[in-house]
Computed example of a mutant assay.
Amino acid sequence: MTATTTERTAERTVDVPEIADPATVAPQDARELSKVFFDQLAVLEEGTPEYQYARNTLIEMNMSLVRYAAGRFRSRGADEMEDIVQVGMIGLIKAIDRFELSRGAEFTSFAVPYIVGEIKRFFRDTTWAVHVPRRLQEARVQLARANEELRSRLGRKPTTKELSELMCLPEHEVVEAQLASNGYNSASLDAAISGSEDGEAVLQDFIGNEDAALELVEDFHALAPLIAGLEERDRKIIHWRFVEELSQAEIGARLGISQMQVSRLIRRLLGRLRAGMSTTEA
Rank of each mutant, 00 (worst) to 15 (best):
V36E: 12
V36Y: 03
F38T: 08
F38R: 10
F38Y: 12
D39T: 11
Q40W: 01
V43E: 12
G47R: 06
T48A: 04
P49L: 05
E50G: 03
E50Y: 09
E50L: 07
Y51E: 03
Y51K: 06
Y53W: 06
A54M: 07
N56E: 11
N56K: 10
T57Y: 02
T57M: 07
E60R: 14
S64N: 13
L65W: 04
V66R: 02
V66A: 05
V66G: 04
R67S: 13
G71D: 02
R74I: 09
G77Y: 05
G77S: 09
A78P: 01
A78C: 05
M81P: 01
E82D: 12
I84G: 01
V85W: 01
Q86D: 11
V87Y: 01
G88T: 06
G88R: 03
G88A: 08
M89T: 12
M89V: 15
I90M: 14
L92N: 03
I93H: 06
K94C: 00
K94W: 00
A95E: 02
A95R: 00
F99R: 02
E100A: 09
E100C: 04
R103H: 12
R103I: 05
G104H: 09
G104K: 11
G104C: 08
F107T: 00
F107E: 00
F107S: 00
T108N: 12
F110G: 03
A111K: 00
V112H: 05
P113Y: 07
Y114R: 07
I115Y: 04
I115N: 03
V116Q: 10
G117H: 03
G117F: 04
I119L: 05
F122D: 02
F122L: 00
F122N: 01
F122E: 01
F122S: 02
F123L: 10
F123C: 04
R124C: 01
D125F: 07
T127H: 11
W128P: 03
A129S: 14
A129Y: 13
V130D: 11
V132D: 04
P133D: 09
R134H: 14
R134T: 14
L136C: 09
Q137R: 15
E138Q: 14
Q142D: 15
Q142S: 13
Q142E: 15
A144M: 08
R145H: 13
R145E: 15
R145Y: 09
R145F: 04
A146N: 09
N147E: 15
E148R: 15
E148W: 12
E149C: 04
L150H: 08
S152L: 12
S152D: 12
R153S: 14
R153Q: 15
L154G: 08
P158K: 08
E162T: 04
L163K: 02
L163A: 03
L163R: 02
S164N: 10
S164E: 06
E165S: 10
L166Y: 07
C168Q: 15
L169G: 03
P170M: 00
P170E: 07
V175F: 05
V175N: 05
